[in-house]
Write a protein that binds this DNA or RNA. Structure first.
Lengths: 97, 97
DNA sequence: CCGATGCATCAGCGCGGATTGACACAGTAC
DNA sequence: GTACTGTGTCAATCCGCGCTGATGCATCGG
């Protein structure tokens, strides 16, 4: 007996981020480089404000960051933070290791 | 443009399993070997029937399997399916790769 | 200037999942 | 046999999360 309760709050929060198909699709699409919001919204069949909200959550978690387009500053490109994504992958893998 | 919609249903479903702190704690505790239900319920501070229900979901996903105790068949020990867990870890890592 | 476009934020609603409480079942001890 | 323990299942409830619809903000083009 006397099992210690494992600390899983961090990995569980990361898993919750990946648990939504829209957010998972965003991260999958960003594997091949940056994309703008309307582009990903169209690919996912979701509305723009929805995708924007999900991107805000990924941003708060530090998994993605945004930059403006050089020519037209209305376009906002999102890109993955490779270091944060690698750390997240390691944290999740630690649960199943 | 014309981004294809990525296929993320599988990884998202796996992430949803890990997104619950109780299920994540179960998998974390099972890393060091099999445990019975009441043991894990006590360690997590959750009720036994609750843990039993979460174990049923992990069982349906194939991540764990159960065996009876040799001495007292009332006690049911759960253990991880290492192959399924490795496959799940690979599927999740593919999202963040 | 004005209208259009791309993005972000907010209150409200609905739905799915987790918890609760009660019960049923198998196995053990007596 | 009865009493007790460990586990599983079920209806009912609660609650958090995502979607909707509207609105605001910044930027570009005329």
């Amino acid at each position: 007996m006397d099992l210690p309760a494992p600390e899983v709050a961090g990995p569980a929060a990361l898993a919750a981020l990946l648990a939504d198909p829209t957010r998972a699709g965003i991260l999958a699409m960003l594997r091949d480089g940056p994309h703008c919001v309307c582009e990903m919204a169209a690919a996912l069949g979701e509305r723009q404000n929805n995708v924007s909200m999900h991107l805000a959550r990924l941003r708060d978690a530090g998994l993605v960051h945004r930059t403006r387009h050089d020519g037209d500053a209305r376009w906002i490109f999102y890109a993955r933070d490779d270091a944060a994504c690698a750390a997240a992958a390691a944290a999740l893998a630690a649960l199943l290791r």
